[in-house]
Simulated scan of single mutants.
Amino acid sequence: MNPTGQRIILAIAALWGLAGVVMLASGSHPPQTGILAIGGQFLLFHAVAVIAILSTSLISGWRRALPMALMLTGSGLFAFEIIIHATTGVVLPALAPIGGGVAILGWLALVIAPLMSSK
């Protein structure tokens, strides 16, 4: 992965961390207690995981890019649905489960990646 791609991924992960902290802070006050905190935790956990993946030399190429892409996309979709629901009351019923499923696939890709031969 080239340095520009790494910077973009790091910036997105940092944005997810920022949004996660904002959601946690907002979710600690009624009436949004709970739902925003869950979305914030989801973003923060995945932001940290992506930064760790970005920092490792144990995996490279698509084996490194795929888990990061799935985690950022999945956690972003999940949190987006939470934000919409908490702020407008509108429920986008498929978005959170799809986002969660995509994030789970990211973790599965990360389980498999270091076990695969790079040759």
Rank of each mutant, 00 (worst) to 15 (best):
A11Y: 06
A11L: 08
I12E: 01
I12A: 00
A13W: 00
L15T: 12
L15K: 01
W16F: 09
L18M: 10
A19Q: 03
A19T: 05
G20A: 02
G20E: 06
V21Q: 01
V22H: 04
V22P: 11
M23T: 11
M23D: 09
L24C: 12
A25S: 08
A25T: 14
S26G: 13
S26L: 13
S28M: 02
P31C: 14
P31K: 15
P31D: 14
Q32S: 07
Q32T: 11
Q32G: 06
I35S: 12
I35T: 15
A37R: 04
A37F: 04
A37K: 07
A37V: 07
I38D: 14
G39R: 05
G39C: 13
G39E: 11
G40I: 02
Q41E: 13
F42V: 02
L43H: 09
L43E: 08
L44G: 03
F45I: 13
F45E: 14
F45Y: 13
F45G: 08
A47I: 02
A49K: 11
A49H: 10
A49R: 12
V50Q: 02
A52T: 07
I53L: 02
I53V: 06
L54C: 04
L54P: 00
L54E: 07
S55A: 11
T56C: 07
L58H: 14
L58A: 12
I59T: 00
S60P: 01
G61Y: 09
R63D: 14
R64H: 15
R64I: 15
R64Q: 14
A65P: 03
A65W: 06
A65R: 01
L66R: 11
P67H: 06
A69D: 14
A69E: 12
M71N: 08
M71C: 14
L72D: 09
T73K: 09
T73E: 05
G74D: 08
G74W: 03
S75A: 03
S75Y: 10
G76C: 06
G76W: 00
F78G: 01
A79C: 08
F80L: 15
E81Q: 09
I82Q: 07
I82W: 11
I82N: 01
I83Y: 11
I84N: 06
H85N: 02
H85E: 13
H85L: 05
A86Y: 04
T87F: 14
T87G: 11
T87C: 12
T87N: 15
T88R: 15
V90A: 01
V90W: 04
V91A: 10
V91K: 15
V91F: 12
